[in-house]
Design a protein around this nucleic acid. Structure first.
Length: 366
DNA sequence: AAATCACTCAACCGCCCATAT
DNA sequence: AATATGGGCGGTTGAGTGATT
């Protein structure tokens, strides 16, 4: 048993809040801010426990709360994040601006969970319930879990940063590259000879980062590619990656350059130049056609066609490596057995989106 | 019009974890 | 190092409300 609930203290009120109590709490927080919740009730003249005050503020009185009906986009996001994170409502809420975790949890339990169940989808695993899985499907499931773990970890880290904006997470990869000296990182197309020692792999929370890490580890790339990569990846946190479903209606990966990009060399400061270098990297991976990627503004979008061949090969091999190896020749990419698995996984992600798109709230089906 | 059912969501409870003593 | 305390989280409850019979 844990310690006894704080609200068992004699004389403290429970149950619904009155407008007068709301006013007292609001007035106090507006004047002094939400300091110590345990001390707040007495100072604000409330016969409530601190926990109750905190909850009332967090879930109802806070000015930046969005209430009311959830949009299609919000429902889609909740389902996608729940597939990755499970019932980690606070993290999910961090990615849905202005919605409280309680609100999202309620909406999930009263709407989305039932909707998935009626569609024959297990709301816990996000899988079709009815049929037994073949060995290939089991492999797909393991691969998807692998992918989900990475993306889930990234989302969790992002949520943490949102909650704690002052927290700066050191990038070990950055540190290692810095230790090599910037001169070693500058792109020199004509350079030949031995490469500088490759940095150790970072602890990776990002699909894109993992992908880049695997590329860097691959032994077959030429000097040009590795040095370009090293120069442009030395500040990995200027890029973010995410799965996206809005492009061509299929799962794509989006790489986006942050606004406050800093590169530790004097080169590549221009956004256009940076994006060009990214494209060089993609070309180094064998990504060369319009069917492989789209580059618009500060985004590079990896299309399913390329993800099948490259991204999928990395993510969906059966090793336990954090950075699965890329196989193949000069391009480093071989479209092999992974493709069928990827097709299944793409279908899975697309099916989640379709569930929402085809079954909006209020639909008579539900 | 009254009774019953189904649903929503604000609020509480118990537990975990980080920090202070 | 051990204990106490406070904040935060996820699970659950139950009063209120609208729909249906």
């Amino acid at each position: 048993m844990g310690r006894p609930p704080c609200c068992e203290k004699v004389g403290l009120k429970k149950g619904p809040w009155t407008p007068q109590e709301d006013h007292k709490l609001l007035a106090y927080i507006e004047q002094y801010g939400p300091g110590s919740w345990s001390a707040l009730p007495a100072e604000a003249g409330l016969q409530r426990c601190g926990k109750s005050c905190r909850l009332r503020w967090k879930n109802y009185l806070r000015p930046d709360i969005k209430r009311g009906k959830f949009s299609l986009q919000e429902e889609q996001t909740i389902i996608q994040l729940h597939a990755l994170l499970g019932n980690r409502w606070s993290i999910i809420a961090a990615h849905l601006s202005k919605r409280t975790d309680n609100d999202i949890k309620n909406h999930w339990n009263t709407h989305l969970k039932k909707r998935l169940t009626k569609m024959g989808i297990d709301p816990v695993t996000h899988k079709q319930k009815s049929h037994a899985l073949s060995p290939d499907q089991l492999k797909d499931a393991a691969n998807l879990k692998h992918m989900a773990q990475w993306e889930g970890a990234r989302l969790e880290a992002e949520a943490r940063l949102i909650r704690e904006p002052k927290l700066q997470v050191p990038n070990p990869f950055q540190t290692q590259l810095d230790s090599l000296g910037s001169a070693e990182l500058v792109y020199e197309a004509t350079t030949t000879g031995p490469l500088p020692p490759l940095p150790l792999q970072p602890i990776c929370l990002d699909v894109l980062t993992a992908w880049k890490g695997s590329w860097l580890k691959a032994p077959k790339y030429n000097d040009f590619a590795v040095r370009t990569f090293a120069a442009t990846s030395s500040s990995l946190d200027f890029l973010t990656s995410s799965l996206d479903f809005s492009k061509k209606g299929e799962a794509c990966m989006i790489m986006k350059a942050g606004a406050d990009l800093e590169i530790p060399t004097n080169d590549f400061q221009d956004p256009k130049e940076r994006m060009d270098i990214e494209l060089l990297q993609l070309q180094g991976l064998g990504c060369s056609t319009d069917d492989d990627f789209m580059a618009t503004g500060n985004e590079t979008i990896l299309l399913p066609n390329f993800m099948e061949a490259g991204f999928g090969d990395m993510l969906f091999d059966n090793s336990n490596q954090l950075y699965p190896s890329i196989t193949g020749g000069n391009s480093g990419i071989v479209a092999g057995t992974c493709c069928s698995n990827l097709e299944e996984n793409k279908n899975y992600w697309n099916s989640i989106v379709n569930l929402v798109n085809c079954s909006p709230s209020g639909s008579p089906v539900f």
